[in-house]
Computed example of a mutant assay.
Amino acid sequence: MTRRRFLDRTHRNRTRRDESGRGFNPASMIRLAGFGAAIIIAAGVYIGFTRQGETIYDGRWGVLQRLITPLFFGVNALELLVLVIVGLVGWRIWRKMQ
Rank of each mutant, 00 (worst) to 15 (best):
F72Y: 14
F72T: 08
P26H: 03
E54A: 14
I41K: 03
V89S: 08
A77E: 04
G53R: 12
I93Y: 08
I47E: 00
L80A: 07
H11F: 00
I41D: 04
R5M: 07
D58R: 12
I47T: 01
R9N: 12
V75T: 12
M97Y: 03
A27D: 12
I56S: 09
R16S: 12
I41L: 09
A42V: 06
L88F: 14
R60S: 00
P70Q: 04
N25K: 10
V86L: 15
F24H: 08
E19Q: 15
M97C: 01
I93N: 08
V82C: 07
E54L: 13
D58M: 09
V89K: 01
R31P: 08
P70S: 11
T2M: 01
H11E: 00
R66I: 12
E54P: 06
T2G: 09
G62I: 04
A33D: 08
M97R: 06
R14V: 14
Q65L: 13
E54I: 12
L64K: 00
Y57D: 01
M1N: 01
G34V: 11
L83Y: 13
A43D: 06
R3M: 02
G34Y: 09
T55C: 05
T69R: 13
A43E: 02
S28R: 08
R95K: 10
R14N: 10
R9G: 06
Y57S: 06
R17Y: 14
R92D: 10
A33W: 01
F24V: 03
I39P: 04
F72H: 12
R14D: 11
G36C: 09
A33P: 02
D8G: 06
A27N: 12
R22L: 15
G87K: 00
R31W: 15
R3V: 04
Q52E: 11
Y46F: 06
G44S: 13
W94Q: 00
Q98G: 07
G62N: 11
G36R: 01
R95W: 07
G53A: 15
T55S: 13
F35E: 14
G36A: 11
Q52K: 09
R31I: 15
R4W: 02
G74A: 03
D8N: 05
L83I: 09
R12H: 10
R9T: 05
T15Y: 13
F73V: 02
A33N: 05
V63A: 13
L71F: 08
G90T: 03
L7F: 05
A43P: 02
F72R: 09
G44A: 13
A77L: 10
F35G: 14
R31A: 15
I93V: 14
T55P: 03
G21V: 01
I93T: 09
L80V: 04
R4F: 07
W91L: 11
G59C: 02
Y46M: 00
A38P: 06
G44K: 05
I39M: 07
R95Y: 07
T55W: 07
I47V: 02
P26D: 03
G36V: 09
A38W: 04
M29L: 14
N76V: 05
I30F: 10
R31Q: 15
D18T: 11
D8R: 06
R12S: 11
R22I: 11
D8W: 02
R16M: 10
L67S: 09
W94D: 00
A43S: 09
